[in-house]
Design a protein around this nucleic acid. Structure first.
Length: 658
RNA sequence: GCCGCUGUAGCUCAGUGGUAGAGCGCACCCUUGGUAAGGGUGAGGCCGAGAGUUCAAUUCUCUCCAGCGGCACCA
């Protein structure tokens, strides 16, 4: 007679069942509806197969599609396996490797027999996947001995699986899952009871890509197929719609349409800013300059090109050289096209960072403890020779301008400086339209410089600062820089994406390397601590983020053209000129549209350009000295006295804090 | 840097082994019209660069460059 076990259901009720009863049996006992909807179960909180036997007293919860997070994880994981099965059915000889879930779907990495997959292969693979789902193949778990499994993989020519099976941790149960009786994959699970639980209309294969085996650039390049999967077709459609929305907001597309900037191959990875884009840049820069001045920073400007000896001293030559642009200090001969570089020529390098130069400014003259904290800021233009494959519009460039700053202070001032910085950040992000900021505290990595007690104090100083600033944060253990712990600030944008922008990094190493010191109260020399900090990160990237966040429709104060004065007919041209002039005098960025076009056409065009306000002037307005204000996004308009309209618009266009 | 895809007019894109087309935009003309496209005419392209196959290449092949999607990288 089988022993009984007691299971406790989520509502608190308890049942006695025979040991070995499965989750499916439990669900069926509760109701046929639940049995049908059941996807998996949680036993004492752990997600398991529905078919797993219950062998001890436990809390049991049946997982259905209503448990969104669990359901999506299970569904996507199963889809990855179905993808692998379909690919092996269609392309015999393809090796399977690894197929996890992602934030919105799944992927599977394959080692193709002859050629990598292309997007043209995807429809056929999708069809095959649908066939596997419609066949409703049961998924069955089996535990294997490691040696047997390795032998099996080797027999089947699955070298990657064999390698992996050989490296799974000792003592861990190794399981495989069968799909029907004809296909299996090594997997920890859990899985759904059968492929038929998947909705054949709620997934889509989205793209193919190369990916390294085990993420190691020195290993084989595999062929990855990405897919997205959801509980229902409706959810899939909503997701695809979000993708379209992201595409609509793409800053590269908007940059062209709104005439903000361009790139061209002669200056790969560097931006040509057009007048409108640069107006946004200047507005943002002026705003930041002002906020930082209010925050006690002294703005400086440091050299672009410095002797390589200097970069050796700072440590960048060792650690960062592959990303640096090196410039020989030679005068090219005018006699020949060939560039001869004297092997003894001095080597210069474009600065990839501003910090060492800021230390040089600090070191001029003797600093006293009374000078601390000293806050230096720079809109520092840096060059980094980023790998070609990584360049991306404004987001990843080779020439960028950081809103950089370095605070030199005593160790006991770290916490207060961090609090002050966090408060400034909150103001800045709020002004720029970001309310959702996630903070991470990255703590000491394994390989690091400095004594542990210094790290203890530094980490404690930062966490105290976060508490004092009233910020919630998450700890990222081991993710600090080798020279000190850091804070990272991640902004969530209008469509839910997260961007790391702000950072505050403690540095105990560079002041020592570059020999920065101050005279303390005791008359002796001391090392200052250096805080590297940025709020936006790079102006290029941040403008890209802003463009996408606002979908190109910038708030009035950042808009490159704030108002357009447009005439209905030539009758009002003189008045319109007067209005434009007055608007300019009120501090607004104004365009005047006197073209011989219909007002419909003008409104359409300026709306496409996302101009915040169109001031329409016709005969009527000219006679009454009013303007007809049409705001971006509005379908109607308001006629207002000119002075009143300009006053309101100018107020709205005022840069925050100025 | 690695894998795949793409590269035709300012933009978005058709197209062909016999040196090219549309829409929008642009220029000019007509039109002076009250809130998201008025009409006409015209200009504009070394079909990414180089090499190869061919009587002939924008089209086929190769190499390179760039862009796009990923991967790796982002101390």
């Amino acid at each position: 007679m089988a022993a009984l076990v007691t299971i406790t259901l989520p509502d608190g009720s308890q049942r006695q069942v025979r040991a070995g009863t499965t989750g499916h049996d439990v669900a069926a006992e509760i109701g046929t509806g639940l049995a049908k909807a059941a996807l998996a179960m949680r036993v004492d909180g752990e997600l398991c197969d529905l078919k797993a036997p219950l062998t001890r007293d436990a809390a049991v919860a049946i997982v259905t599609a209503k448990d969104e997070a669990d359901a999506l994880e299970l569904i996507r994981h199963d889809f990855a396996h179905v993808l692998a099965e379909a690919v092996q059915a269609l392309y015999p000889g393809t090796q399977i490797t690894f197929g996890p879930t992602t934030a919105d779907g799944f992927y599977y990495d394959f080692a193709p027999k002859d050629r990598p997959f292309t997007e043209e292969d995807l429809p056929a693979i999708e069809d095959k996947m649908r066939a596997i789902i419609r066949a409703d193949k049961p998924l069955r778990r089996e535990v294997w001995e490691r040696a047997d499994l390795i032998a099996r993989w080797q027999r089947d020519g699955e070298a990657f699986k064999a390698e992996w099976a050989g490296e799974l941790p000792e003592g861990e149960e190794i399981s495989v899952y069968w799909s029907g009786d004809d296909w299996m994959d090594m997997c920890r699970g859990p899985h759904l009871p059968s492929t038929g639980k998947l909705d054949p209309d709620a997934f889509k294969l989205t793209k193919v890509a190369g990916a390294y085996w085990r993420g190691d650039a020195d290993r084989e390049m595999l062929s990855r197929i990405y897919g997205t999967a959801w509980r229902t077709k409706k959810e899939l459609k909503a997701y695809l719609h979000r993708l379209e929305e992201a595409e609509r907001r793409d800053h590269r597309k908007l940059g062209r349409e709104l005439d903000l900037f361009h790139l061209q191959e002669e200056a790969q990875g560097s931006i040509f800013w057009h007048p409108k884009g640069y107006r946004m840049w200047l507005k943002l820069e002026q705003y930041m300059r002002n906020r930082q001045r209010q925050g006690g920073y002294h703005e400086i400007k440091t050299p672009q090109v410095l002797d390589s000896k200097f970069w050796r001293l700072s440590g960048h030559w060792d650690k960062f050289r592959e990303n640096m642009f090196v410039v020989p200090d030679v005068v090219p001969s005018s006699d020949s096209d060939e560039l001869h570089i004297d092997p003894d020529a001095k080597m210069m390098a474009l600065k990839p960072m501003n910090c060492p130069a800021h230390v040089q400014v600090f070191k001029q003259g003797i600093k006293s403890y009374r000078d601390l904290p000293l806050r230096l800021s720079e809109f520092g233009c840096c060059h980094r020779n980023e790998s070609h494959g990584g360049l991306h519009g404004l987001m990843r460039v080779r020439q960028m301008t950081q809103d950089d700053g370095h605070i030199f202070c005593r160790e006991d001032q770290i916490s207060q400086e961090a609090v002050t910085f966090c408060r400034l950040l909150e103001v800045v992000y709020g002004d720029l339209g970001f309310d959702d900021v996630a903070v991470k505290l990255a703590t000491r990595p394994e390989v690091r410089a400095g004594e542990d007690d210094v790290w203890d104090r530094a980490e404690a100083g930062l966490s105290e600062a976060l508490d004092a600033a009233g910020l919630d944060y998450e700890v990222a253990p081991g993710e600090g820089a080798f020279y000190g712990p850091k804070l990272e600030f991640h902004l969530r944008d209008a469509i839910g994406r997260s961007w790391q922008c702000g950072t505050l990094q403690l540095d105990f190493v560079m002041p020592q390397r570059l020999d920065a010191e101050y005279v303390g109260e005791d008359g002796a020399k001391h090392r200052p601590v250096m805080l590297h900090r940025a709020m936006l990160g790079s102006l290029e990237r941040f403008l890209g983020i802003l463009i996408e966040h606002y979908a190109g429709a910038m708030p009035m104060w950042l808009a490159p053209t704030q108002v357009v004065v447009a005439t209905i007919t030539d009758d009002a041209a003189d008045y319109a000129c007067e209005v434009a002039e007055a608007a300019r005098n009120a501090g607004l960025e104004v365009d005047l549209d006197l073209r011989n076009e219909k007002i419909n056409f003008k409104v359409r065009e300026h709306s496409h350009q996302k101009v915040p306000a169109i001031l329409v002037c016709g005969k009527r307005e000219a006679e009454s000295r009013t303007v007809n204000v049409r705001r971006f996004g509005a379908k109607d308009q308001t006629e207002m006295p000119l002075d009143q309209a300009l006053k309101a618009l100018a107020e709205e266009a005022r840069t925050p804090g100025m």
